[in-house]
Design a protein around this nucleic acid. Sequence first.
RNA 1: GCGGGAGUAGCCCAACUGGCAAGAGGCGCCUGCCUCAGAAGCAGGUUGUUGUGAGUUCGAAUCUCACCUCCCGUACCA
Length: 653
Amino acid sequence: MRQWLLKITEYAERLLADLEGLDWPEHLKQMQREWIGRSEGADVRFPVGDDHEFTVFTTRPDTLFGATFCVLAPEHPLVAAITTDAQRADVEAYIEKTARRSERDRMADIKTKSGVFTGAYATNPVDGRQVPIWIADYVLITYGSGAIMAVPGQDQRDWDFAKAFDLPIIRTVQPPEDFDGEAFEGDGPAVNSGFLDGMEVTEAKAAMIAWLEEQGRGEGRVTYRLRDWLFSRQRYWGEPFPILHRENGDLVPVADAELPVRLPEVESYKPTGTGESPLAAVADWVETTDPSDGARALRETNTMPQWAGSCWYYLRFVDPHNTQAFCDPEKEKQWLPVDVYVGGVEHAVLHLLYARFWHKVLFDLGLVSTPEPFQRLVNQGMILCPSYREAENTPYLRIDDVEIRDGTPIVKATGKPAYSVVEKMSKSKKNVINPDEIIQEYGADTLRLYILFMGPPDADKLWDRSGIQGVYRFLNKAWRMLCGTDRHPASELTDAPAEGEARHALHTAIAGTTADMESLAYNTAISKLMVLLNAMGDLDPLPREMATAFLSMLAPFAPHAAEAMWETLGGEGFASLAPWPTHDESALQTATEDYAVQVNGKVRGKLTVAADAPDEAILTAAKALPNVSEHLTGHTLVKEMVVRGRLVVLAVK
RNA sequence: GCGGGAGUAGCCCAACUGGCAAGAGGCGCCUGCCUCAGAAGCAGGUUGUUGUGAGUUCGAAUCUCACCUCCCGUACCA
């Protein structure tokens, strides 16, 4: 079947290199790097007799003198041609056996090497030695050239194979004296390697590549694990490829004026079972003409996968009603790249790599102005929960079938301890917490506030409802203070501005909460609101500006409660639409400042001085502290410094 | 195996670029107030070898190295 591929490999290098400038979690960048899988090395051609030749890819051209055999993937096209009659039966049996073996099987026993000798020999291009050619399933047809040169001295897999089939081993890198392993994959001077002898690995690689190129027997090459992207599907739903097949076999794109190609109305859009797209059966849609000359033509019937939409939807969000272009270039310049993209780690290598690729293609076409779509990316963590089973690998139990006795989960039915693992919530694991129950008991605001308060957004967290009480009390306290209850009147409000400590508390909270919001540190932002509320509790009357600022900042975390309180207080409009409070820098300062006095890194005293006291005065006062002077006498002062607003550093000998 | 992240109080977690006797907040626990009593509330109190060992530094939770444990990813990729 002919399929459409997108040539993402063409962008492999840029997709890799441009990761460096992105503000993404390291583990995610790493996953993309591994997915792209760049390897630097060389292609080396091995002649087989006078008529044949195959190419191997190696990352270690420096070890070519140690290549004592070659291995082809069982599916390699050359296998049939070079296998000797004596070996043919064995080779064919092995190929058949491999074909039957599932991926899973192949991976299960990585330790055991299997393979068969083809009876043929290849010429090692570096010294003309004849080396046997084997086939084995540890060589994958899908990677590199599907053929390797085996260097058992420097590669553990080759070592294992050589040992299993009694093939020769030559060391070409000198291991250190205390090396007691098998294959030596580390760095060291080349040995048994002719013109490379004595060179370190890096130097030897370069020298060998230069020699191969000069001799015309190979060349330096970079290989990627990333493969081209199969982009066609045989189903009804999906964007049709806008392509016409002319009778002479030419493929022509549908003219811009004819776009988009719309799907025909059909009775059945079920798969045909023939492998062909359901669209192929819609004759009056498929059969058309090429408008350029009226010649008969057939429409392409494959459709695109959902990626065709998800790869660039964010660009459409910028200008969703534009009928002329996917978005106005001015708007694109204004909004892109996306400032913060929040999503699950499951998108790490598919969606996030594909969208980057499309964006780069658009960038190269001059249709977008940045080479990368998502500048900052955050992966939210998952809430984890214990799951229970009677034992490992037995079916999962419902949480109700287990009870906790003295901290140990016990299976109710058997009275025996349960096998418990903390893992991602999942229906199949029966460890899902239903938020409805929490909402019933505490309300949606409490749940939301608590989830945010549990820890940093990017950390996985163990579900533990014991802390809910804390945020529930916090909301109740705010309500009591601002709206009052039957038993407890609301605090009296004043329009007078906050003064002194209250002012300091307010502005410290605004500054801190705002900064935490920017960095997505919601857990600490909430704790700062708790501090502010506690400070408000000591005030009678309570300055209205404090209540207002508090509610504005509470609104993102507990929207319902915040709006209700806002309304009770007679606030205009919505708390969530009111301007975010801003802090006054001068209110953050205090008249006096506390200093810790360190002698040789240990705090020996505390000091409170006027905020504008000069360094000299602070040092003098610090040295005069009894416990400090005690640690100074009899020693030579070698260093003294003041860290403004924090501490005095004294070092003695 | 390789790669990434984490390890701070009984528990969840803070600690800005190394700098306040290790602490913001919450849970739990204890005491007191309030109450007929409980719940709720209020006030106060409570605990440490910052995973282990070394190094750098006047000074390390923070930087470096080694090791341990857990989580995530990946795996015959030549």
